[in-house]
Design a protein around this nucleic acid. Structure first.
Length: 334
DNA sequence: CATGTGAACCGCCAGA
DNA sequence: ATTCTGGCGGTTCACA
């Protein structure tokens, strides 16, 4: 999508771009937490301009023994930490073990230089050991909360939330909460429209019927108004029909002007922009499930013609509809 | 790819 | 005073 990437002003000193992400791995790696980081920041997303660049940096020499008995190799090039504007620590192998002091030094230096540092689950113990959390609020998996608080009394531990954003230091709770934290960062850097897009692609729901759809659709949306949310749902359910600003506005009894404001405020986009975005998404699903030709897909997703579908599809996804179908028709993993 | 037409969008202001 | 809403006019944008 062509929404210009916004760089959150909270991060990034001179030369540090928050969209340059480095994940730290170690012997004893928690694969699940690491994978979350990869899924969020490490996959290529040609449809989004200026997407994250992702590197992995290992503090130990290969092979790393990871969870599940597999071994992993990773780069030990420390310069990754000098470049990164966002550094993620996905867990830590042993709560009783103090992380290596050179790692702590480098984290402190990166932080002082303007980098954002984020942790998933037990990764918070690394940030804590570096002293980056002193005087700040932090969270972690509920099982570790007490230990974190007693060992680091200067940290205000709150185990009741999914993640905590202290500006340049961010922590998240149990493993999966790393997804929420990651989406939060995406929202800061690219806006909620993109964050929602990523969230949806992440939660690949090949058969989306059940009542969970609501929950999966917009994990980071900020819809203050229930009737506005209902409007979005009803439009989404009838994407093949005609929708104008006037008709949508009438649907919730507000003026066109207010409708435009609602979209801007809660989704940071415009009605028309959102509509084509939704239509392209639907077209993606239809293409993935391999029903009908491009002509039919266009009609069912509300594009007046196949040309129009091609135009928008290419612009937003980066591939032509047929190329997309070829590539993602069966096992799309992102 | 250029171009005309109508819709979409947003800043601004007035009224609630 | 503050915040929200609707309408107007000009500009931009999408579609044919």
């Amino acid at each position: 999508m062509e929404t210009a990437a916004r760089v959150s002003e909270s991060a990034g000193g001179l030369g540090r771009d928050p969209r340059s992400v480095a994940a730290i791995v170690y012997d004893g790696l928690c694969l699940f937490e690491y994978s979350i980081v990869v899924e969020l920041f490490g996959l290529s997303r040609p449809e989004i301009e200026n997407w994250y660049r992702f590197e992995t940096f290992s503090i130990d020499r290969a092979p790393l023994r990871a969870t599940g008995g597999v071994t992993v190799e990773a780069s030990v090039d420390r310069s990754a930490l000098d470049r990164a504007g966002t550094i993620v620590v996905p867990g830590w192998r042993d709560l009783e073990e103090t992380p290596p002091s050179d790692l702590l030094d480098e984290l402190r230096a990166a932080h002082a230089d303007g980098a954002r540092i984020a942790s998933v689950c037990s990764g918070v113990f690394v940030l804590a050991a570096a002293g980056l959390l002193d005087g700040l609020r932090a969270t972690t998996h509920w099982r570790y909360a007490e230990r974190l608080a007693s060992r680091y009394p200067k940290i205000e531990v709150d185990s009741g939330v999914l993640y905590i954003d202290e500006g340049r230091v961010l922590t998240s709770a149990g493993s999966a909460a790393g997804i929420d934290l990651g989406l939060h960062l995406v929202r800061l850097d690219f806006g909620s429209e993109v964050a929602n897009h990523v969230a949806r692609r992440l939660v690949v729901a090949p058969h989306r019927d059940g009542g969970q759809a609501q929950f999966l659709e917009r994990p980071v949306a900020v819809e203050e108004d229930a009737s506005f949310a209902a409007l979005l749902d009803s439009v989404r359910a009838t994407l093949d029909g005609e929708h104008t600003i006037a008709s949508m506005a009438a649907g919730i009894h507000v003026s066109s002007r207010s409708l435009i404001r609602l979209f801007r405020r809660s989704l940071d986009t415009t009605p028309h922009e959102w509509l084509t975005q939704e239509r392209v998404r639907l077209a993606q699903e239809l293409l993935e499930s391999a029903e009908g030709g491009v002509e039919q897909v266009a009609a069912r997703s509300g594009f007046g013609s196949a040309q129009l579908l091609r135009h928008h599809f290419r612009r937003r996804v980066g591939l032509s509809p047929t190329a997309y179908r070829r590539r993602f028709s069966k096992c799309d993993s992102s």
